Amino acid sequence: MHYEGNMIRPPSEAYSILLQATVGCSHNKCTFCAAYKGERFKIKSDDIIMSDIEFAARHCRNQDRLFICDGDALIIPQKRLLAILKEIEQKLPWVNRVGVYANTKGIAMKTSEELAELRAHGLKIAYMGLESGDDETLKAVNKGADSQKMIDMGKKIRAAGVALSITVLLGLAGRERSEIHAQKTGEVLSAIDPEYVGALSLMLIPGTPLYDEYAAGRFPILTPEETLVELRTMITHTNLSNGLFHANHASNYLPIRAKLPEDKASTLRLINQALAGKIRLKPEHMRGL
């Protein structure tokens, strides 16, 4: 396989074939993210992509999922992306799910018919970073889309039959807007109604603009207890028809895996028990990205 730069994939794609079709992220301006720092976005040549599919056909027969890297492969023009999916269908017939990262820009560039066409040729899941449902927070971290755009694009890709996994970031709004961030995020998640939600806890990375804000004393990091209160508020305002809400990433203080709506009450009780000191939280040195 021909890999370049700092490749990132979702935790749920840990055992997937990783096919790198793009390098970096076309937005790459979020103030909290250092994933593709210093990398210039590009779409790799079809020759390299197809040769990597050929490699996978010979060496990856025990992996039935494939993830197209990097940051937003959905931005690849329709004709080229469709050709990649068709090649995967032909050369890797045992692969039963293809996934991509999808930002609002990439989804907006595709018509509903084009998204359905991609779904028909194996694109089964997309991962979208919402981070927050609060417009002020989204603007502050330079996310590049407001909450309504997130809702519209999330609904659009779901309507095409592609499962949606959304990431939100606890602590991203700081202390002053913590409650608003949590409530608005729950409301946006409810409006989109994705199949999966992953809540991560903010970990500041040196070299990012948000870290610089923290170092200058202008951005406060939430305590573990404040983070749990934010999570409680977020779940309280999140109403999914049939979704999984995970907060079991390495960055989280309290691992949570809840099926909504049925596990909502028990999950809120669990958080309350942790806040009351009855459940031990993950120590700081054991957290990770």
Results as ranks from 00 to 15, higher is better:
residue 151 I to D: 09
residue 197 V to Q: 08
residue 199 A to S: 09
residue 173 A to P: 00
residue 162 V to H: 05
residue 98 V to N: 08
residue 174 G to A: 00
residue 179 E to H: 01
residue 137 T to L: 08
residue 97 R to I: 08
residue 191 A to G: 04
residue 112 S to R: 07
residue 106 G to F: 06
residue 164 L to D: 02
residue 134 D to F: 12
residue 197 V to T: 15
residue 189 L to G: 01
residue 143 K to H: 09
residue 114 E to R: 04
residue 177 R to C: 02
residue 130 L to K: 12
residue 183 Q to K: 15
residue 98 V to A: 10
residue 163 A to V: 00
residue 109 M to F: 12
residue 191 A to L: 03
residue 196 Y to M: 15
residue 129 G to P: 10
residue 190 S to G: 04
residue 145 A to Y: 06
residue 139 K to D: 12
residue 151 I to P: 09
residue 205 I to F: 06
residue 155 K to Y: 10
residue 176 E to N: 06
residue 151 I to L: 11
residue 145 A to V: 10
residue 110 K to E: 05
residue 140 A to S: 14
residue 178 S to K: 13
residue 99 G to I: 07
residue 189 L to H: 05
residue 183 Q to S: 11
residue 203 M to P: 09
residue 99 G to Y: 06
residue 185 T to R: 10
residue 194 P to M: 10
residue 169 L to M: 03
residue 155 K to C: 10
residue 122 G to W: 05
residue 157 I to C: 03
residue 128 M to C: 03
residue 135 D to F: 14
residue 118 L to V: 00
residue 161 G to T: 00
residue 165 S to K: 07
residue 174 G to R: 03
residue 180 I to W: 01
residue 142 N to V: 14
residue 141 V to S: 13
residue 131 E to Q: 10
residue 203 M to G: 13
residue 107 I to V: 11
residue 132 S to K: 08
residue 102 A to N: 05
residue 170 L to R: 12
residue 118 L to M: 07
residue 142 N to W: 10
residue 113 E to H: 15
residue 98 V to G: 09
residue 160 A to E: 02
residue 141 V to D: 05
residue 197 V to W: 05
residue 196 Y to H: 12
residue 107 I to K: 06
residue 170 L to N: 15
residue 173 A to V: 03
residue 110 K to M: 07
residue 164 L to K: 06
residue 160 A to S: 01
residue 138 L to H: 07
residue 168 V to C: 12
residue 108 A to D: 07
residue 137 T to V: 13
residue 189 L to D: 03
residue 200 L to S: 07
residue 98 V to Q: 11
residue 189 L to V: 01
residue 142 N to S: 12
residue 153 M to D: 02
residue 175 R to I: 12
residue 190 S to F: 11
residue 204 L to T: 08
residue 116 A to Q: 10
residue 160 A to D: 00
residue 172 L to K: 02
residue 163 A to M: 06
residue 154 G to C: 11
residue 131 E to L: 06
residue 161 G to P: 02
residue 168 V to N: 04
residue 202 L to C: 08
residue 140 A to M: 12
residue 125 I to T: 07
residue 169 L to Y: 02
residue 162 V to P: 04
residue 182 A to V: 12
residue 139 K to R: 15
residue 176 E to W: 11
residue 185 T to H: 13
residue 121 H to D: 00
residue 146 D to M: 12
residue 105 K to N: 00
residue 203 M to T: 13
residue 105 K to F: 14
residue 201 S to Y: 14
residue 195 E to K: 05
residue 163 A to P: 00
residue 131 E to R: 07
residue 115 L to P: 00
residue 162 V to W: 08
residue 111 T to K: 03
residue 170 L to D: 14
residue 149 K to L: 15
residue 178 S to G: 14
residue 159 A to W: 02
residue 154 G to S: 15
residue 145 A to F: 14
residue 114 E to P: 08
residue 190 S to P: 06
residue 176 E to P: 03
residue 127 Y to L: 01
residue 101 Y to C: 04
residue 184 K to Q: 13
residue 196 Y to D: 09
residue 150 M to L: 11
residue 123 L to P: 08
residue 121 H to S: 03
residue 139 K to M: 13
residue 142 N to P: 11
residue 96 N to M: 15
